[in-house]
């Protein structure tokens, strides 16, 4: 075991473990979206879990920092917060903020991070860049909402981990990158109904079981009383 110092608090940790994991286990919340405790490899793609490590000239991502003896870490310096706010605002600039009608409401990681950083859910002075269509209905059971998705890739990695023949993947590139269920037609032949790992792991309800009665987001309908603001745990899978 090694002793490391997170915000001046001494913490015992196993060398080689990810710093983010240690922070989370010790009740120190560091904003993050792409990291998943159960998967060994981290993509370090959401760029939220920045911390300052003594000896490093600039903030580093906690998920890729390995525990070593005498590591000294600060999780809330102005520079760390500045980068985290910037990343969050960028994510919000491609996010359709419609919490009232979103099943992730009150359990949404974006809401949690925004609350911690005190930014609100507006992208500030960035242009709002939304995509068409609002909902992609290709999979027989699940819908994909591109304007909720933060492209953290939890779903893609979990599916790859659980199934020899993954059912969803990233497609396209750059700003057009999307998550796709390309080629999945028949609900009888796929294990999705029993697995649902992708839906459960999604931090923002961008993948959600199809409910044909639910209003299509972005549609003109008023929020229906049984979905707006309801507890997603009840409506969840």
């Amino acid at each position: 075991m090694a002793t490391i110092y997170i915000d001046d608090k001494a913490v015992e940790a196993t060398p080689g473990d990810s710093l983010l994991s240690v922070c989370l286990k010790n009740g120190i919340y560091v904003p993050h979206l792409c990291y998943l405790e159960e998967l060994k490899e981290t993509p370090a793609s959401c760029r939220l879990c920045f911390v300052e490590v003594e000896g490093e000239p600039a903030p580093v991502t906690a998920c890729t920092t390995m525990v070593r003896e005498d590591l000294r870490v600060r999780t809330d310096t102005p520079e760390v917060r500045r980068l985290q706010r910037a990343a969050l605002r960028l994510l919000l600039s491609v996010h359709r903020v419609d919490c009232g009608r979103c099943p992730a409401n009150k359990h949404c990681d974006l809401q949690r991070i925004a609350a911690l950083l005190g930014t609100g859910l507006k992208p500030k002075n960035l242009a709002l860049l939304l995509r068409e269509p609002q909902v992609v209905r290709v999979h027989p059971l699940f819908d994909y909402y591109p304007n909720r998705c933060v492209l953290c890739g939890r779903c893609v990695r979990l599916c790859r981990e659980r199934h020899a023949m993954p059912l969803l993947t990233f497609a396209d590139r750059g700003f057009s990158t999307t998550v796709t269920f390309y080629g999945q037609g028949n609900s009888e032949e796929i294990p999705c109904a029993d697995c649902r790992a992708c839906v459960k792991a999604c931090p923002v309800a961008a993948l959600w079981p199809r409910d044909s009665d639910a209003p299509v987001p972005g549609g003109e309908e008023e929020p229906s009383p049984n979905t707006a603001g309801s507890d997603p745990a009840e409506a969840g899978p």
């Binding site: 023949m165 993954p166 059912l167 993947t169 080629g183």
Partner: peptide
């Protein structure tokens, strides 16, 4: 021996 979606991706 890959999933078509992976090839597409």
């Amino acid at each position: 021996g890959m999933a078509p979606c992976e090839v597409y991706g």
